[in-house]
Computed example of a mutant assay.
Amino acid sequence: MDVAASLSRTAEGALAAAEAADAVAVGLGGTCDLAVVFVRPEHAEELEAIGVAVETRLEPGVLVGAVSQGVVGPDAEVESGPGVVVWGASMPGGRLQPFRSWAIRTPEGGMAVAGWPDPHPDDTVLVLADPLSFPAAEVAIRIGERGRGPTLIGGLVTGGAGLSRFLLDGQVHDDGAVGVVLRGVATRPVVSQGCRPIGEPLTVTAVDRNRILELGGVPATRRLQELLDEVDDTERALLERGGLQVGLVVDEVRDRYTTGDFLVRGVLAVDPEHGSVTVGDLPRVGQTVQFQVRDASTAHDDLAASLAGVGPAAGALLFTCTGRGQGLFGVPDHDVQLVRGALGGTVGGAFCAGELGPVGDRSHLHGYTASMLVFDAHDVRQRGT
């Protein structure tokens, strides 16, 4: 497998795409089976021309791409100003199935998804979806309910209000989702949720949909107050500034739980009057949960730990949350530099408004996460500029 990627900050979109695609062509030195393109909102209206420039130079078997609020190049994250990233790979022996999917209303008033592929459980599905028009979270839930399913990787990608644009083999779409099913390609998913457990594990004993009413027979808000009373001033400040999350244990058979054992969800509301804590999921009675804290240091450590032992790799596609980046870490290029340093391969990707990736044996939609699709290093050449 050969992997190459390039970032151009040239202001004119088609020219930037041509520059980046030329560099990828040199890096691959041959066939391009998959090309992935991400562009900053400044280039939203040029996406069709950008696609033509990439197709002309790389002649990829499959071309997918999107406008995103930020783009990730081999060495840099561009969160403002022009930016076009082209990532390409040669995948001998792999089978790639591109798809376009969209949501439709049923006669009963519900919602169905059209165009979704029928992948095998061992497949990897790369998904780029619009956060407003495509129910990515529901798709992931339905796949998980069927038992062991394919790995979903990607995210909710948009340039902002009115700037959702998706590219699939030369066609531009402004809603739904595009993607590609990867079969017979050596890949590994890596998901870093950027949180650490705090306090003690607790059992949900009463719940109303996404409202946790009781933990261990005690009102959930009382348990939260007990936690705030126990922690030091630094951790209390983090929790009160929005760093509070809840982790839902995904494998109940363990005796002890660490960072990777939780599906982390945000705390949406705390209601002292009714004693409830509302979270961004549907916890169940009997499930073990533990409060979590998120900050820059924890996010750094968790990403480093998630990458330990994964490399070397041919390359990776990185989907990092818009809530990370320089705003969280205080320095530019944090995630891409850490990923490239750990994997040694070529990185490309996008900033997302929600990231898809597996925790346990199921894929989920996350927030504030760095989700990666790592391509294994077997007979590899990789280059990035």
Rank of each mutant, 00 (worst) to 15 (best):
V36Y: 01
T205N: 04
D75N: 14
V172Q: 12
G327Y: 05
E240G: 00
V190W: 06
V190C: 08
M91Y: 10
S164L: 00
L303Y: 09
L128F: 12
F291Y: 13
V253G: 15
V190N: 11
H274V: 10
E55V: 00
R9E: 15
M372W: 03
D271W: 06
D333I: 03
G243K: 03
A377S: 13
A316R: 04
F99D: 12
D169I: 01
V191H: 11
F134I: 04
H43M: 07
L168Q: 13
W102C: 04
P117N: 09
A220G: 10
V178H: 10
D379L: 04
F319N: 02
P150W: 03
G243V: 02
R100H: 15
R165A: 11
G311F: 07
P272H: 06
A316L: 06
P358C: 05
H43S: 08
E230H: 14
T187P: 11
H300P: 00
G199W: 14
V52M: 08
G275M: 11
S297T: 15
A177Y: 01
H378F: 04
G247I: 01
Q326D: 10
A25E: 11
P312D: 14
D130C: 14
V86A: 03
C195L: 07
P272C: 03
G242P: 12
R381G: 09
A350W: 01
L163V: 02
G344I: 13
A25Q: 12
V85M: 11
L239W: 06
A304N: 08
G65C: 05
G323V: 04
T151I: 12
R211H: 12
T203R: 12
L15V: 15
R236L: 09
C352R: 02
A353P: 00
L343N: 08
D122T: 10
L15Q: 15
P272D: 13
G194P: 12
V52W: 12
D295S: 12
Q382N: 14
S80P: 04
L328Y: 07
A177S: 14
L215F: 09
G367W: 04
S276A: 15
L228S: 05
R188E: 15
H366I: 03
D22N: 13
L182D: 13
D233G: 03
P135T: 05
R142Y: 03
C321G: 07
L168V: 11
P332K: 06
A17W: 01
D232E: 13
S192W: 02
G149R: 07
T187F: 01
H173G: 05
R105C: 02
G160V: 01
P74Y: 09
Q225P: 00
R381T: 13
Q382E: 09
M111T: 12
C32M: 10
S306C: 14
